[in-house]
């Protein structure tokens, strides 16, 4: 890592995060006391079986949903204290988000999609940074295209560029490669890795693919709403091993 001080601060985190859906018999504890921090300038992967609470955790961290109890923070802000409008502004200015699919507004060009959060804020994008991001994800020739004229992989790259463009405190990506073939998926992961290593960004990504997780600096394992394990410097093989272990 380039600067060790930065890593000392968490870009985002959760403390005793509990999220309960439903009541009584139908009660589901999607998050059951999760405490975790996500380091600045690091690429973290969240893994776990389907239904283990990965998306829920990510939505709560990103200000798209609220916890039942516990706290989550991004940068120096506790999200639980914020009003609906403040949360919206936080998402716009401090957080980037990449969904599994349908990330782009079909009526806007690729470039307009990238700058959308800043346009919504009425801010001018930092042109040098924007150029860097666009080049990193290799979008330059496609900027004026509409989403319908882009391939799935290109669309996800535009989404990553949008998430990075406003220099947010942290980017969340929920299975960003889930709908892509392995080649496009690999490319996308490569770009995300670049963004972290070379541009100093912070990314948290949900995935259930060990190969994808291997691009990360650290992997956090969730099961039944609990953090059950974690691993640094992951490789696909080690992740797969651990998954097998946990599965038993």
């Amino acid at each position: 890592m380039s600067t060790s001080e930065q890593t000392a601060f968490a870009a985002a985190g959760a403390v005793d995060a509990v999220k309960v859906y439903g009541e009584g018999d139908t009660e589901v504890r999607a998050l059951d006391g999760v405490t975790a921090t996500f380091e600045r300038g690091k690429f973290t992967a969240i893994m776990g079986p389907s239904g283990s609470g990965k998306s829920t955790l990510m939505h709560c961290l990103a200000g798209l949903d609220r916890l039942s109890t516990g706290r989550v923070f991004v940068g120096d802000t506790y999200l639980d204290d914020l009003s609906e409008a403040q949360l919206t502004e936080l998402r716009r200015d401090k957080i980037g988000f990449v969904f599994q699919a349908f990330n782009l507004i079909p009526t806007l060009s690729a470039l307009e999609n990238v700058t959308l959060p800043m346009d919504l804020a009425g801010r001018k994008p930092d042109q040098a940074w924007l150029d860097q991001v666009i080049d990193t994800v290799g979008l330059r020739p496609r900027l004026t295209h509409r989403p319908s004229e882009l391939s799935g992989g290109q669309q996800q790259r535009v989404a990553v560029a949008r998430a990075l463009a406003s220099q947010p405190d942290i980017v969340f990506a929920d299975e960003p490669t889930g709908n892509l073939d392995s080649r496009s998926g690999g490319e996308l992961l490569q770009f995300m890795r670049h963004a972290v290593s070379d541009l100093g960004q912070t990314i948290v990504m949900v995935t259930h693919d060990p190969t994808a997780a291997a691009y990360a600096d650290r992997v956090v394992f969730l099961a039944d709403g609990h953090i059950v394990s974690e691993m640094t410097e992951p490789t696909a093989a080690r992740v797969l091993d651990l998954m097998k272990q946990l599965g038993d």
Binding site: L64, E84, A85, T88, E89, R91, R92, D93, F97, F99, F102, N103, L104, I105, P106, L116, P117, L120, A121, R162
Partner: peptide, 16 residues
């Protein structure tokens, strides 16, 4: 609906 959800997710305020 989906598009509106996305816009809100990336920071469009209700007012906007």
């Amino acid at each position: 609906t989906k598009e509106l959800g996305l816009l809100r997710a990336v920071g469009m305020t209700k007012k906007q």
